[in-house]
Design a protein around this nucleic acid. Structure first.
Length: 464
RNA sequence: UCCGGGGUAGCUCAAUUGGCAGAGCACCGGACUGUUAAUCCGUAGGUUGUGGGUUCGAGUCCCACCCCCGGAGCCA
Protein backbone atom coordinates (compact mmCIF):
# COMPACT_ATOMS: atom_id res chain seq x y z
CA UNK A 1 0.00 0.00 0.00
CA UNK A 2 1.27 3.43 -0.92
CA UNK A 3 1.53 5.93 1.88
CA UNK A 4 -0.64 9.04 1.47
CA UNK A 5 0.23 12.53 2.65
CA UNK A 6 -2.04 13.69 5.44
CA UNK A 7 -2.99 16.87 3.56
CA UNK A 8 -4.62 14.68 0.94
CA UNK A 9 -6.20 12.25 3.39
CA UNK A 10 -7.86 15.13 5.23
CA UNK A 11 -9.67 16.14 2.05
CA UNK A 12 -11.01 12.69 1.25
CA UNK A 13 -14.61 11.73 1.87
CA UNK A 14 -14.55 8.08 0.81
CA UNK A 15 -15.48 6.84 4.27
CA UNK A 16 -14.65 3.18 4.74
CA UNK A 17 -11.56 3.20 2.53
CA UNK A 18 -8.29 1.79 3.74
CA UNK A 19 -5.38 4.25 3.73
CA UNK A 20 -1.83 4.38 4.99
CA UNK A 21 -0.20 7.46 6.48
CA UNK A 22 3.10 8.07 8.18
CA UNK A 23 4.44 10.87 10.32
CA UNK A 24 5.45 12.02 13.74
CA UNK A 25 3.32 11.75 16.85
CA UNK A 26 2.33 15.11 18.29
CA UNK A 27 0.44 13.76 21.27
CA UNK A 28 -1.20 10.65 22.64
CA UNK A 29 -4.37 10.84 24.69
CA UNK A 30 -5.56 7.70 26.40
CA UNK A 31 -9.28 7.17 26.67
CA UNK A 32 -10.93 5.56 29.62
CA UNK A 33 -12.45 3.14 27.17
CA UNK A 34 -9.26 1.21 26.63
CA UNK A 35 -8.04 2.89 23.46
CA UNK A 36 -5.87 5.85 22.53
CA UNK A 37 -5.96 8.92 20.33
CA UNK A 38 -2.83 9.66 18.37
CA UNK A 39 -2.39 12.98 16.69
CA UNK A 40 -0.09 12.49 13.75
CA UNK A 41 1.52 15.17 11.57
CA UNK A 42 3.69 14.69 8.49
CA UNK A 43 4.26 18.37 7.70
CA UNK A 44 2.19 18.29 4.54
CA UNK A 45 -0.42 20.48 6.17
CA UNK A 46 -0.92 22.43 9.34
CA UNK A 47 -3.55 20.02 10.59
CA UNK A 48 -2.66 16.52 11.59
CA UNK A 49 -4.69 13.37 11.40
CA UNK A 50 -6.32 11.85 14.46
CA UNK A 51 -5.67 8.13 14.67
CA UNK A 52 -7.77 5.83 16.83
CA UNK A 53 -5.65 3.03 18.26
CA UNK A 54 -7.86 0.37 19.77
CA UNK A 55 -6.73 -1.68 22.75
CA UNK A 56 -7.12 -4.83 20.69
CA UNK A 57 -4.15 -3.98 18.46
CA UNK A 58 -1.43 -6.57 19.06
CA UNK A 59 1.19 -3.97 19.99
CA UNK A 60 -1.18 -1.75 21.96
CA UNK A 61 0.33 -2.28 25.38
CA UNK A 62 3.88 -3.02 24.28
CA UNK A 63 4.31 -0.08 21.94
CA UNK A 64 1.36 2.22 21.34
CA UNK A 65 0.99 3.12 24.97
CA UNK A 66 4.67 4.05 25.01
CA UNK A 67 4.30 6.50 22.11
CA UNK A 68 5.06 10.12 22.89
CA UNK A 69 5.55 13.35 21.05
CA UNK A 70 8.34 13.03 18.51
CA UNK A 71 8.08 9.33 17.73
CA UNK A 72 7.78 8.31 14.08
CA UNK A 73 5.17 5.78 13.02
CA UNK A 74 3.09 4.64 10.08
CA UNK A 75 -0.54 3.65 10.31
CA UNK A 76 -2.80 1.57 8.13
CA UNK A 77 -6.43 2.03 8.91
CA UNK A 78 -9.99 2.67 7.89
CA UNK A 79 -11.17 6.19 7.16
CA UNK A 80 -14.16 6.92 9.42
CA UNK A 81 -16.26 9.93 10.31
CA UNK A 82 -15.19 11.35 13.64
CA UNK A 83 -17.83 11.41 16.37
CA UNK A 84 -15.79 13.97 18.32
CA UNK A 85 -15.59 17.69 17.76
CA UNK A 86 -12.53 19.23 16.15
CA UNK A 87 -12.05 17.01 13.14
CA UNK A 88 -14.23 15.79 10.31
CA UNK A 89 -12.62 12.42 9.80
CA UNK A 90 -10.19 10.17 11.60
CA UNK A 91 -8.28 6.99 10.94
CA UNK A 92 -9.25 3.82 12.80
CA UNK A 93 -5.99 1.92 12.87
CA UNK A 94 -5.68 -1.73 11.92
CA UNK A 95 -1.89 -1.69 12.04
CA UNK A 96 0.60 0.69 13.61
CA UNK A 97 4.32 0.34 12.97
CA UNK A 98 6.70 2.37 15.11
CA UNK A 99 9.73 3.47 13.09
CA UNK A 100 11.62 5.61 15.55
CA UNK A 101 11.13 6.19 19.23
CA UNK A 102 11.56 9.51 20.98
CA UNK A 103 12.41 9.20 24.64
CA UNK A 104 10.19 11.71 26.43
CA UNK A 105 12.83 12.22 29.11
CA UNK A 106 15.34 13.55 26.63
CA UNK A 107 13.26 14.74 23.65
CA UNK A 108 13.47 18.53 23.87
CA UNK A 109 10.10 19.39 22.33
CA UNK A 110 7.09 19.36 24.59
CA UNK A 111 3.39 19.63 24.11
CA UNK A 112 3.37 23.07 25.61
CA UNK A 113 4.51 26.28 24.04
CA UNK A 114 8.29 26.66 23.69
CA UNK A 115 9.92 30.04 23.25
CA UNK A 116 11.34 30.92 19.84
CA UNK A 117 14.66 31.66 21.54
CA UNK A 118 14.82 28.13 22.92
CA UNK A 119 13.82 26.66 19.56
CA UNK A 120 16.73 28.47 17.89
CA UNK A 121 18.98 26.21 19.92
CA UNK A 122 16.99 23.27 18.55
CA UNK A 123 17.08 24.28 14.91
CA UNK A 124 17.21 20.64 13.83
CA UNK A 125 13.95 19.81 15.62
CA UNK A 126 11.97 23.02 15.35
CA UNK A 127 10.50 22.21 11.91
CA UNK A 128 8.40 19.67 13.82
CA UNK A 129 6.54 22.44 15.62
CA UNK A 130 3.37 24.10 14.42
CA UNK A 131 5.01 27.46 13.93
CA UNK A 132 8.08 26.35 12.05
CA UNK A 133 6.18 23.89 9.91
CA UNK A 134 3.91 26.76 8.91
CA UNK A 135 6.86 29.08 8.28
CA UNK A 136 8.46 26.44 6.04
CA UNK A 137 5.27 26.03 3.99
CA UNK A 138 4.75 29.79 3.62
CA UNK A 139 8.40 30.25 2.66
CA UNK A 140 8.09 27.52 0.05
CA UNK A 141 4.89 29.05 -1.29
CA UNK A 142 6.56 32.45 -1.65
CA UNK A 143 9.50 30.90 -3.48
CA UNK A 144 7.24 28.99 -5.84
CA UNK A 145 5.10 32.09 -6.44
CA UNK A 146 8.19 34.13 -7.15
CA UNK A 147 9.25 31.82 -9.95
CA UNK A 148 5.70 31.64 -11.30
CA UNK A 149 5.37 35.43 -11.29
CA UNK A 150 8.58 36.05 -13.19
CA UNK A 151 8.29 33.05 -15.50
CA UNK A 152 4.76 34.12 -16.50
CA UNK A 153 6.20 37.50 -17.47
CA UNK A 154 9.09 36.05 -19.50
CA UNK A 155 11.82 36.88 -17.03
CA UNK A 156 14.76 34.51 -17.33
CA UNK A 157 15.99 32.86 -14.14
CA UNK A 158 19.69 33.62 -13.91
CA UNK A 159 22.22 32.00 -11.59
CA UNK A 160 24.83 34.56 -10.63
CA UNK A 161 28.06 33.52 -8.92
CA UNK A 162 28.32 32.91 -5.19
CA UNK A 163 32.06 33.55 -5.22
CA UNK A 164 33.05 36.90 -6.62
CA UNK A 165 36.38 38.41 -7.50
CA UNK A 166 35.10 41.89 -6.99
CA UNK A 167 35.82 43.30 -3.56
CA UNK A 168 34.11 46.53 -4.43
CA UNK A 169 30.46 45.80 -4.99
CA UNK A 170 29.80 48.44 -2.44
CA UNK A 171 26.94 46.76 -0.64
CA UNK A 172 28.60 45.85 2.61
CA UNK A 173 31.39 43.93 4.29
CA UNK A 174 32.30 40.66 2.64
CA UNK A 175 33.40 37.19 3.72
CA UNK A 176 36.75 36.22 2.27
CA UNK A 177 37.02 32.97 0.34
CA UNK A 178 40.41 31.31 0.46
CA UNK A 179 42.09 27.91 0.60
CA UNK A 180 45.02 29.30 2.54
CA UNK A 181 45.92 27.97 5.96
CA UNK A 182 45.07 31.01 8.10
CA UNK A 183 48.06 30.27 10.33
CA UNK A 184 50.61 30.43 7.57
CA UNK A 185 49.49 31.93 4.27
CA UNK A 186 52.09 32.45 1.54
CA UNK A 187 53.73 35.83 1.83
CA UNK A 188 55.29 38.18 -0.66
CA UNK A 189 58.73 39.62 -0.07
CA UNK A 190 57.23 42.55 1.80
CA UNK A 191 55.25 40.13 4.06
CA UNK A 192 51.85 40.81 2.54
CA UNK A 193 49.58 37.79 2.01
CA UNK A 194 50.28 36.60 -1.53
CA UNK A 195 46.88 36.03 -3.05
CA UNK A 196 48.41 35.27 -6.43
CA UNK A 197 49.08 31.83 -4.94
CA UNK A 198 45.51 31.41 -3.68
CA UNK A 199 42.97 29.15 -5.42
CA UNK A 200 41.70 31.82 -7.80
CA UNK A 201 44.99 33.64 -8.05
CA UNK A 202 43.42 36.73 -6.56
CA UNK A 203 41.38 37.75 -3.51
CA UNK A 204 37.86 36.37 -3.64
CA UNK A 205 34.75 36.84 -1.54
CA UNK A 206 31.20 35.63 -1.08
CA UNK A 207 28.79 37.72 -3.07
CA UNK A 208 26.86 40.58 -1.52
CA UNK A 209 24.64 40.99 -4.57
CA UNK A 210 24.10 39.47 -7.99
CA UNK A 211 23.03 42.78 -9.43
CA UNK A 212 26.09 43.74 -11.44
CA UNK A 213 26.17 40.31 -13.08
CA UNK A 214 22.41 40.41 -13.60
CA UNK A 215 22.80 43.69 -15.49
CA UNK A 216 25.04 41.95 -18.00
CA UNK A 217 22.38 39.36 -18.80
CA UNK A 218 19.60 41.93 -18.85
CA UNK A 219 21.75 43.69 -21.45
CA UNK A 220 21.37 40.64 -23.67
CA UNK A 221 18.24 38.72 -22.68
CA UNK A 222 16.06 41.71 -21.71
CA UNK A 223 14.39 40.64 -18.46
CA UNK A 224 16.12 38.43 -15.92
CA UNK A 225 15.92 37.67 -12.22
CA UNK A 226 18.17 36.01 -9.68
CA UNK A 227 17.13 34.14 -6.57
CA UNK A 228 20.04 33.00 -4.50
CA UNK A 229 22.03 33.31 -1.30
CA UNK A 230 23.78 36.54 -0.35
CA UNK A 231 26.38 37.16 2.34
CA UNK A 232 27.23 40.13 4.49
CA UNK A 233 29.84 39.98 7.22
CA UNK A 234 28.60 43.03 9.07
CA UNK A 235 28.35 42.63 12.82
CA UNK A 236 24.63 43.22 12.73
CA UNK A 237 22.63 42.10 15.74
CA UNK A 238 19.05 42.88 14.99
CA UNK A 239 15.85 41.02 14.31
CA UNK A 240 16.05 42.11 10.66
CA UNK A 241 19.58 41.04 9.66
CA UNK A 242 21.31 37.80 8.73
CA UNK A 243 24.88 37.12 7.61
CA UNK A 244 23.52 34.71 5.01
CA UNK A 245 20.20 35.49 3.42
CA UNK A 246 18.36 34.99 0.16
CA UNK A 247 17.69 37.75 -2.28
CA UNK A 248 15.57 38.11 -5.37
CA UNK A 249 16.91 40.57 -7.92
CA UNK A 250 14.97 41.26 -11.10
CA UNK A 251 16.65 43.38 -13.74
CA UNK A 252 14.82 44.81 -16.77
CA UNK A 253 16.29 46.25 -19.95
CA UNK A 254 14.50 49.14 -21.64
CA UNK A 255 12.88 50.11 -18.36
CA UNK A 256 12.95 53.16 -16.11
CA UNK A 257 12.32 53.64 -12.42
CA UNK A 258 8.56 53.93 -12.91
CA UNK A 259 8.53 50.52 -14.58
CA UNK A 260 10.65 49.34 -11.66
CA UNK A 261 8.14 50.57 -9.08
CA UNK A 262 5.29 49.05 -11.07
CA UNK A 263 7.05 45.70 -11.09
CA UNK A 264 7.83 45.80 -7.36
CA UNK A 265 4.26 46.59 -6.47
CA UNK A 266 2.72 44.07 -8.83
CA UNK A 267 5.09 41.37 -7.60
CA UNK A 268 4.42 41.94 -3.90
CA UNK A 269 0.66 42.14 -4.31
CA UNK A 270 0.72 38.97 -6.42
CA UNK A 271 2.57 37.12 -3.65
CA UNK A 272 0.20 38.17 -0.89
CA UNK A 273 -2.91 37.46 -2.95
CA UNK A 274 -1.55 33.98 -3.58
CA UNK A 275 -0.95 33.34 0.11
CA UNK A 276 -4.43 34.54 1.06
CA UNK A 277 -6.02 32.36 -1.59
CA UNK A 278 -4.03 29.16 -1.10
CA UNK A 279 -2.52 29.13 2.37
CA UNK A 280 -5.24 30.37 4.66
CA UNK A 281 -4.82 27.57 7.21
CA UNK A 282 -1.23 28.53 7.96
CA UNK A 283 -2.08 32.24 7.87
CA UNK A 284 -4.96 31.66 10.29
CA UNK A 285 -2.50 30.11 12.70
CA UNK A 286 -0.13 33.07 12.51
CA UNK A 287 -3.04 35.47 12.80
CA UNK A 288 -4.23 33.76 15.97
CA UNK A 289 -0.96 33.05 17.77
CA UNK A 290 1.76 35.28 16.33
CA UNK A 291 0.37 38.51 14.88
CA UNK A 292 -3.28 39.45 15.29
CA UNK A 293 -3.35 41.97 12.47
CA UNK A 294 -1.64 39.75 9.92
CA UNK A 295 -4.49 38.77 7.62
CA UNK A 296 -5.98 42.27 7.61
CA UNK A 297 -2.60 43.69 6.69
CA UNK A 298 -1.91 41.18 3.92
CA UNK A 299 -5.39 41.72 2.54
CA UNK A 300 -5.03 45.46 2.53
CA UNK A 301 -1.64 45.26 0.85
CA UNK A 302 -2.96 42.89 -1.79
CA UNK A 303 -6.04 45.01 -2.47
CA UNK A 304 -4.83 48.62 -2.26
CA UNK A 305 -2.34 50.53 -4.33
CA UNK A 306 0.95 51.40 -2.67
CA UNK A 307 1.70 54.98 -1.75
CA UNK A 308 4.38 56.49 -3.98
CA UNK A 309 6.32 59.56 -2.93
CA UNK A 310 9.68 61.06 -3.65
CA UNK A 311 12.37 61.40 -1.02
CA UNK A 312 11.77 65.16 -1.02
CA UNK A 313 8.06 64.66 -0.37
CA UNK A 314 8.89 62.19 2.38
CA UNK A 315 11.07 64.81 4.07
CA UNK A 316 8.16 67.26 3.91
CA UNK A 317 5.78 64.74 5.46
CA UNK A 318 8.25 63.95 8.24
CA UNK A 319 8.98 67.60 8.97
CA UNK A 320 5.27 68.33 9.34
CA UNK A 321 4.71 65.29 11.55
CA UNK A 322 3.57 65.75 15.13
CA UNK A 323 5.84 62.92 16.21
CA UNK A 324 9.07 63.79 17.97
CA UNK A 325 11.91 61.95 16.25
CA UNK A 326 15.21 61.02 17.88
CA UNK A 327 17.05 61.89 14.69
CA UNK A 328 16.55 65.19 12.91
CA UNK A 329 14.76 65.22 9.58
CA UNK A 330 16.62 67.19 6.99
CA UNK A 331 17.04 67.00 3.26
CA UNK A 332 20.27 65.20 2.43
CA UNK A 333 20.46 62.75 5.30
CA UNK A 334 19.21 59.22 4.99
CA UNK A 335 15.87 58.18 6.41
CA UNK A 336 16.27 56.54 9.82
CA UNK A 337 14.35 53.46 10.86
CA UNK A 338 12.00 55.60 12.91
CA UNK A 339 11.32 57.80 9.87
CA UNK A 340 10.59 54.85 7.63
CA UNK A 341 8.32 53.39 10.27
CA UNK A 342 6.42 56.64 10.59
CA UNK A 343 5.86 56.87 6.84
CA UNK A 344 4.60 53.34 6.31
CA UNK A 345 2.83 52.81 9.64
CA UNK A 346 1.57 56.18 10.85
CA UNK A 347 1.42 58.51 7.85
CA UNK A 348 0.06 56.15 5.19
CA UNK A 349 -0.71 52.83 6.87
CA UNK A 350 0.37 50.81 3.86
CA UNK A 351 3.46 50.07 1.79
CA UNK A 352 5.23 53.17 0.59
CA UNK A 353 7.56 53.43 -2.37
CA UNK A 354 10.04 56.23 -1.82
CA UNK A 355 11.96 57.34 -4.90
CA UNK A 356 14.59 59.85 -5.98
CA UNK A 357 17.01 59.95 -3.08
CA UNK A 358 19.99 62.33 -2.90
CA UNK A 359 22.99 61.17 -4.91
CA UNK A 360 25.27 61.49 -1.92
CA UNK A 361 23.58 58.78 0.15
CA UNK A 362 23.07 56.19 -2.58
CA UNK A 363 25.18 53.74 -4.57
CA UNK A 364 27.35 54.66 -7.55
CA UNK A 365 25.32 52.71 -10.10
CA UNK A 366 22.06 54.57 -9.59
CA UNK A 367 20.97 56.80 -12.46
CA UNK A 368 21.51 60.54 -11.99
CA UNK A 369 18.32 62.57 -12.32
CA UNK A 370 18.17 65.75 -14.40
CA UNK A 371 18.39 67.85 -11.24
CA UNK A 372 21.94 66.49 -10.79
CA UNK A 373 21.38 66.09 -7.05
CA UNK A 374 19.10 63.07 -6.83
CA UNK A 375 19.16 59.59 -8.33
CA UNK A 376 16.39 57.35 -9.66
CA UNK A 377 16.42 55.13 -6.58
CA UNK A 378 13.53 53.28 -5.04
CA UNK A 379 12.88 51.81 -1.59
CA UNK A 380 9.74 49.87 -0.72
CA UNK A 381 8.85 50.25 2.95
CA UNK A 382 6.31 48.03 4.63
CA UNK A 383 4.76 48.22 8.10
CA UNK A 384 6.56 46.19 10.75
CA UNK A 385 9.53 45.15 8.68
CA UNK A 386 10.72 48.41 7.18
CA UNK A 387 12.75 48.31 4.00
CA UNK A 388 11.86 45.16 2.08
CA UNK A 389 13.05 46.24 -1.35
CA UNK A 390 15.82 48.51 -2.50
CA UNK A 391 16.47 49.27 -6.14
CA UNK A 392 17.00 51.83 -8.85
CA UNK A 393 17.23 52.68 -12.48
CA UNK A 394 20.86 52.06 -13.42
CA UNK A 395 23.18 54.68 -14.81
CA UNK A 396 23.47 53.76 -18.50
CA UNK A 397 25.56 56.80 -19.60
CA UNK A 398 29.26 55.99 -19.56
CA UNK A 399 30.48 59.49 -18.75
CA UNK A 400 28.02 59.90 -15.89
CA UNK A 401 28.91 56.48 -14.50
CA UNK A 402 32.59 57.36 -14.61
CA UNK A 403 31.86 60.58 -12.78
CA UNK A 404 29.85 58.76 -10.12
CA UNK A 405 32.62 56.21 -9.54
CA UNK A 406 35.09 59.00 -9.09
CA UNK A 407 32.86 60.95 -6.76
CA UNK A 408 32.30 57.83 -4.65
CA UNK A 409 36.03 57.26 -4.45
CA UNK A 410 35.92 53.99 -6.40
CA UNK A 411 38.51 52.80 -8.90
CA UNK A 412 37.02 52.69 -12.39
CA UNK A 413 39.48 49.96 -13.35
CA UNK A 414 37.69 47.54 -11.03
CA UNK A 415 34.50 48.06 -13.02
CA UNK A 416 35.86 47.64 -16.54
CA UNK A 417 33.38 44.97 -17.57
CA UNK A 418 30.50 46.82 -15.92
CA UNK A 419 31.46 49.93 -17.85
CA UNK A 420 31.65 47.92 -21.08
CA UNK A 421 27.88 47.49 -20.88
CA UNK A 422 27.73 51.27 -21.28
CA UNK A 423 30.24 51.26 -24.13
CA UNK A 424 28.44 48.74 -26.26
CA UNK A 425 24.73 48.88 -26.87
CA UNK A 426 23.84 50.58 -23.62
CA UNK A 427 20.16 50.79 -22.75
CA UNK A 428 18.08 52.26 -19.95
CA UNK A 429 17.53 49.53 -17.41
CA UNK A 430 16.34 49.10 -13.86
CA UNK A 431 15.97 46.53 -11.13
CA UNK A 432 15.71 45.93 -7.42
CA UNK A 433 16.66 43.55 -4.67
CA UNK A 434 14.13 41.98 -2.36
CA UNK A 435 15.20 40.43 0.93
CA UNK A 436 13.45 37.09 0.88
CA UNK A 437 13.53 36.56 4.64
CA UNK A 438 12.03 39.99 5.23
CA UNK A 439 9.29 38.99 2.84
CA UNK A 440 8.66 35.83 4.87
CA UNK A 441 8.65 37.93 8.03
CA UNK A 442 6.05 40.25 6.63
CA UNK A 443 3.99 37.31 5.35
CA UNK A 444 3.93 35.44 8.66
CA UNK A 445 4.19 38.19 11.26
CA UNK A 446 7.24 36.46 12.72
CA UNK A 447 9.17 39.12 14.65
CA UNK A 448 12.69 37.75 14.33
CA UNK A 449 14.32 37.05 10.98
CA UNK A 450 16.19 34.12 12.56
CA UNK A 451 12.88 32.30 12.73
CA UNK A 452 12.02 32.48 9.03
CA UNK A 453 15.11 30.70 7.69
CA UNK A 454 15.94 27.08 8.47
CA UNK A 455 19.42 27.59 9.87
CA UNK A 456 20.11 31.26 10.56
CA UNK A 457 23.64 32.58 10.21
CA UNK A 458 24.33 35.50 12.53
CA UNK A 459 27.41 36.66 14.44
CA UNK A 460 28.50 33.79 16.73
CA UNK A 461 25.91 31.42 15.35
CA UNK A 462 26.71 28.65 12.88
CA UNK A 463 26.09 25.59 15.02
CA UNK A 464 23.96 23.73 12.52
C1' U B 1 29.89 47.76 17.31
C1' C B 2 26.85 51.11 20.83
C1' C B 3 22.61 51.53 24.51
C1' G B 4 19.13 48.85 27.62
C1' G B 5 17.26 44.18 29.67
C1' G B 6 18.34 39.17 30.87
C1' G B 7 20.92 33.94 32.02
C1' U B 8 17.87 29.85 38.62
C1' A B 9 14.92 22.16 37.67
C1' G B 10 14.00 19.23 30.88
C1' C B 11 10.73 23.95 29.71
C1' U B 12 8.40 28.85 31.51
C1' C B 13 9.38 31.62 35.67
C1' A B 14 9.41 33.08 41.44
C1' A B 15 12.86 33.93 45.58
C1' U B 16 11.56 40.60 50.55
C1' U B 17 17.02 44.91 53.52
C1' G B 18 22.59 39.27 51.61
C1' G B 19 20.01 34.40 55.89
C1' C B 20 17.49 26.67 54.89
C1' A B 21 16.61 27.64 46.40
C1' G B 22 10.36 27.33 45.21
C1' A B 23 5.96 26.91 41.77
C1' G B 24 3.52 25.60 37.19
C1' C B 25 4.13 22.58 33.00
C1' A B 26 6.56 18.15 30.95
C1' C B 27 8.15 13.21 32.47
C1' C B 28 7.16 8.84 35.69
C1' G B 29 3.27 6.13 39.00
C1' G B 30 -2.00 6.05 40.08
C1' A B 31 -7.33 7.74 39.09
C1' C B 32 -11.12 9.14 35.28
C1' U B 33 -16.34 4.80 29.52
C1' G B 34 -13.92 9.71 22.86
C1' U B 35 -10.21 12.78 23.93
C1' U B 36 -8.61 17.51 21.28
C1' A B 37 -2.57 22.95 23.41
C1' A B 38 -3.60 23.41 31.63
C1' U B 39 -9.02 16.70 34.44
C1' C B 40 -7.53 15.01 39.63
C1' C B 41 -3.78 12.86 43.30
C1' G B 42 1.33 11.53 44.14
C1' U B 43 6.83 10.72 43.30
C1' A B 44 11.16 12.60 41.50
C1' G B 45 13.86 16.56 39.61
C1' G B 46 19.47 21.91 41.09
C1' U B 47 27.57 23.00 40.85
C1' U B 48 21.63 29.55 40.26
C1' G B 49 25.98 31.23 32.48
C1' U B 50 31.76 30.99 33.45
C1' G B 51 36.02 32.63 36.41
C1' G B 52 37.60 35.59 40.40
C1' G B 53 36.46 38.77 44.82
C1' U B 54 33.82 40.87 49.45
C1' U B 55 31.27 38.40 53.69
C1' C B 56 30.17 34.29 59.42
C1' G B 57 26.98 33.52 55.16
C1' A B 58 26.07 35.31 47.93
C1' G B 59 20.82 33.47 43.20
C1' U B 60 21.14 38.43 45.55
C1' C B 61 26.88 42.84 46.34
C1' C B 62 31.80 43.99 43.32
C1' C B 63 35.23 42.88 38.86
C1' A B 64 36.18 40.33 34.21
C1' C B 65 34.40 37.29 30.39
C1' C B 66 30.66 34.31 27.48
C1' C B 67 25.83 33.91 25.58
C1' C B 68 20.61 35.45 24.67
C1' C B 69 16.71 39.27 23.81
C1' G B 70 15.09 44.32 22.40
C1' G B 71 16.51 49.08 20.27
C1' A B 72 20.27 51.81 17.20
C1' G B 73 23.90 51.77 13.19
C1' C B 74 25.03 49.00 8.53
C1' C B 75 21.38 47.26 4.99
C1' A B 76 17.81 43.41 2.19
Amino acid sequence: MKRQLIKHVLQRDDIGSTVEVAGWIRTRRDSKGGFSFLEMNDGSSFDGLQVIADGSLPNYQSEIQQLHIGAAASVVGELVESPGAGQRIELRATEIVVHGWADPESYPLQKKRISFERLRELAHLRPRTNTFGAVARIRNALAASTHRFFQDRDFLYLHTPIITGSDAEGAGDMFRVTTFDPASPPRTEDHQVDYSQDFFGRPTFLTVSGQLEAETYASALSNVYTFGPTFRSENSNTRRHLAEFWMIEPEMAFADNHDNADLAEEYLRYLFRGLLDDHSRDLDFFNQWVDEGLIDRLTSVADREFERITYGEAIDVLQKAETQFDFPVQWGSDLQSEHERYLTEAAFGRPVIVTDYPFDIKAFYMRRNDDHTTVAALDVLVPGVGEIIGGSQREERLEVLADSLERKGLDAADYWWYADLRRFGSVPHAGFGLGFERLVQFSTGMQNIRDVIAFPRTPHNAEF
